[in-house]
Design a protein around this nucleic acid. Structure first.
Lengths: 132, 132
DNA sequence: GCGTTTTTGACAATCATTATCGTTGCCACG
DNA sequence: CGTGGCAACGATAATGATTGTCAAAAACGC
């Protein structure tokens, strides 16, 4: 029996995924990460990669982005809340913080009586290198 | 020869989809809309519904939202740029405008040299009726 | 070490969206 | 008014990422 159900175990696969994310720059899809782990010789199932990523996302350790195109992209981000400026062409990403936006969103939501507020914001553009 | 390549033809199906969206409140998935058209006796293919919605979205006549859950939701919105405050529980939606956010996003993007800027913003919360 | 419980992982299932491709109907021009 | 080109249509198949399943393996507490 026991009382708490939060028994998160420390497994080789979980470490591998987490470590890989630590070294990567930019966003990668679950399938990308799975392929990379395979190349390194890590034996990890695709299912596990998905589960691990979801777990990390729930724990707030990584960010998830759903670009128009279907695939979910994951990335280890600096902690705290922030948003992303993504290049349409090359995918280059810049983290941006917008305290003003945060408070604006909260304020608007509360004005309408909405509670437990969260939001998603992505900015898309063409980066300097790709403009030419 | 010719001047504009916008040879958009005026078809029964396009009108039907557009008209239906005009009467609907809130967001609906492509498959929803297709089912409703069928119920009305309109004979429209699912493929065409998707194509038409994409066309309308490109033309800026409707809004697309990609909620966590996979389905794309479409809605005829008041013209102009705005965002949505969506209830997690019941889906009730409020349109909100945030000029400050718009300009902030543009400014941030330009500071980083990004051109041709757009953005997506959704606010999620629990509406008053669902809080209890 | 031992038993319990979580986690893993191969595979199948799901399901929205997209591609295909022959057919249909709109539109413009003769 | 008739005709031809060309885009739109639509049924079906294909795609492809994500989720469910469940027996086997591994971790943790003792």
């Amino acid at each position: 029996m026991s009382e708490n159900g939060a028994a998160v175990r420390n497994t080789r696969q979980r470490s591998a995924v987490s470590a890989l994310l630590g070294e990567m720059e930019g966003f990668h899809s679950a399938q990308d990460l799975h392929a990379m782990l395979r190349q390194r010789g890590e034996r990890v199932g695709l299912t596990t990669v998905y589960r691990t990523l979801q777990g990390l996302a729930d724990a707030g350790e990584i960010d998830v982005m759903r670009p128009p195109g279907g695939e979910h992209l994951y990335r280890r981000c600096s902690e705290g809340h922030h948003h992303h400026l993504v290049c349409r062409a090359c995918g280059r990403t810049v983290e941006v913080a917008g305290p003003a936006v945060e408070s604006w969103a909260d304020r608007v939501a509360e004005q309408h009586g909405y509670a437990d507020v969260s939001h998603t914001l992505e900015i898309f553009g063409t980066c300097p290198a790709c403009v030419r």
